[in-house]
Write a protein that binds this DNA or RNA. Structure first.
Lengths: 126, 126
DNA sequence: ATATTATATACCCATAATGGAATATGTCAA
DNA sequence: TTGACATATTCCATTATGGGTATATAATAT
């Protein structure tokens, strides 16, 4: 009865979920750019670029400045911080997981050294 | 002519764009939980919870384990790392921005101390 | 076998997003 | 003014979401 899905302009999480928009931000990370440069770098149709920029603008991830007949877009990374912070909340969890993977790998390495086995699953032939 | 929007199950970026799903992950961060516990904690309808869990499962953000007639869901944070890493790419940008804000605040504070002015915009009365 | 509990799926609806193509707006030049 | 260039907006078709409600499936208890 209400929204089908949070609009892309709802917050930076939604705006950035679209891979295209992440690409745009990636390019803008190097500095201010006019729309046409983005169009050329990305190889997309100009309206598409403008539309993605509009979404980014609405969530405050980019700023615009007019220079003659072009509009120079620049990044404003601040709204990405909440995303980073939120993900950080879970950092210890994937660390542990990676640790476990690493430990298992090391344990295997030890076994190999001890028994001179081969790095392969299954029982080791005696 | 193709996808209207990347499916929520496309990657963790999209899965996590939905605030509800972040809530679920938040609860699971404390440990394995059966669906019903989530339903009670969140106060949503059970099918809704199951559906969100399904999306999280498809992008690998949760694992399931059967225990009798219940299914115990646990978090698997690994797919959040790419999000964290991606955001980190821009960290220096929002740092700078924050630094600039802080610097401006400090500069203002200095002026206030020097001239005993009031924290207000506009020209300072001589 | 049947009832009960726990969870998943199917169906409906309103909303909206994406890319493409065409067109509008705005700015500068001649 | 007219034309060329830079960018934005509108319209279209396709796709899929998320909530609600009803129902299916699975496991346990009686």
């Amino acid at each position: 009865m209400d929204m089908a899905r949070a609009p892309t302009t709802f917050d930076s999480f939604n705006a950035v979920a679209e891979p295209c928009r992440r690409q745009v931000l990636g390019l803008l990370a190097t500095g201010e750019l006019p729309v046409n440069d983005l169009v050329n770098s990305l190889g997309w149709h100009q309206p598409q670029v403008s539309k993605h920029l509009r979404v980014l603008l609405q969530v405050g991830l980019v700023r615009v400045r007019r220079a003659g007949r072009q509009r120079l877009y620049s990044i404003n990374a601040a709204p990405l911080k909440p995303i980073h912070d939120w993900a950080s909340t879970f950092e210890h969890l994937w660390q542990h997981q990676l640790d476990r993977v690493k430990q298992r790998a090391e344990a295997k390495a030890v076994l190999m050294r001890e028994q001179g086995g081969v790095d392969r699953m299954g029982p080791v032939k005696k």
